[in-house]
């Protein structure tokens, strides 16, 4: 089984986001970067598929040079090798998808796994775009996956319920939290990962379709009426919910 897993480098979710000097992107100073949390579920699933059926797990990243740090983590978790398409552009999902599709055509994977979204731009677009560019089936936001021969059965939450979707390999899957429990790399694996190859490439450019005008931090003025749990205060909160927020 040839398994391709997309991984991206994102700020730690505990990061307080500040606008950078250019007014269009974040201030990266002091920001800790991690593997996109959803990509860890994708990678773990890829590793389990390999453990079950044999084969090879290759990760692909379309990102800047420092992405190598998170690629090393992925290799320590058990990926066999990695591809890094070097770019500083990260907002344009089509550019990312196109470059992943270009590599996929060369690698010919049986399955491509992604995190359901990258927690920086939160676009949820790359898995769908890659599937379209390759003419592969697509199942997104998957929290349970079973592969039997070339048959793929996936479960996912949809608004107000859950559904079971079937398709066949080769396909694109995007992973939701709950799909599995990602492993922590052990020290010998971390050392071994240092010798695993990272294939560095230049991207194929696509015509730019967007211009980020500015980035801003949303601010909502709050009333901040903080009271105690005395009977009178709670009655007052109920009154505010009724008269002020008008929700009851």
């Amino acid at each position: 089984m040839k398994i391709l897993v997309g991984i991206s480098r994102v700020p730690d979710t505990a990061t307080r986001i500040l606008v950078g000097k250019d007014g269009k992107s974040i201030d990266e100073q002091g920001v800790k970067f991690i593997i996109n949390p959803y990509d860890e579920f994708a990678l773990e699933e890829g590793l389990r598929i390999k453990e079950k059926f044999g084969g090879e797990v290759v990760t692909i990243t379309v990102g800047p040079e420092p992405s190598k740090e998170i690629i090393r983590t992925a290799l320590a978790m058990g990926a066999d090798r990695a591809v890094l398409v070097k770019t500083n552009s990260s907002f344009d999902s089509f550019f990312t998808a196109k470059n992943i599709a270009i590599y996929a055509k060369e690698f010919n994977p049986d399955i491509i796994l992604f995190g359901k979204q990258s927690v920086d731009y939160d676009s949820l677009a790359v898995p769908a775009m890659v599937s379209e560019l390759l003419n592969f089936p697509l199942i997104t936001i998957v929290s349970k996956l079973t592969i039997d021969g070339s048959k793929v059965v996936a479960e996912r939450d949809v608004v107000g319920g859950r559904e079971v979707v079937e398709t066949t390999l080769p396909c694109v899957i995007s992973a939701q939290k709950g799909l599995n429990e990602p492993r922590y790399p052990k020290l010998p694996d971390i050392l071994k990962a240092k010798n695993k190859p990272i294939d560095e490439r230049s991207p194929q450019e696509t015509s730019p379709m967007y211009e980020i005008i500015n980035m801003e931090i949303p601010h909502r003025a709050r009333k901040n009426i903080i009271l105690s749990d005395s009977d009178e205060d709670i009655a007052e909160i109920a009154r505010l919910l009724h008269e002020d927020a008008k929700i009851i």
Binding site: R16, E211, M215
Partner: peptide, 16 residues
């Protein structure tokens, strides 16, 4: 569009 789970947002000009 909100980014970073709503911690920030961007205004994007789209042409096409």
């Amino acid at each position: 569009k909100p980014i970073y789970a709503g911690k920030a947002q961007i205004n994007v000009l789209v042409d096409g």
